[in-house]
Amino acid sequence: MDTVLTLDSDGHLAHLSDWSEQAAEQLAASENILLSDAHWEIIYVLKEFHQRFALSPPMRPLVRYVAQQLGKEKGRSIYLMQLFPPSPARVASKIAGLPRPENCL
């Protein structure tokens, strides 16, 4: 049963503290994504990025950070594009409960 999430005008969680794995599944469903282990791995890397830098990364920094954390194979835009189409930085940060990335291209 879905709970009602408070979202901002971009469809992102209004309060990061409302995030849970269940909320993530709900947010993913709104993007037509069914979360697999490969998705979760990226979601937790994103949450760590936000925790560490107080920022939601746009594409380039996200790719770099994933490469640092999970290796070069996964730190590629095509890999992230397959998991979080059509705009990985926006879609993945939404599912991870982060604000919409600023400077998002």
Partner: peptide
């Protein structure tokens, strides 16, 4: 914290 993201 934000500044430390500059290289990324």
């Amino acid at each position: 914290a934000m500044a430390s993201a500059l290289p990324l």
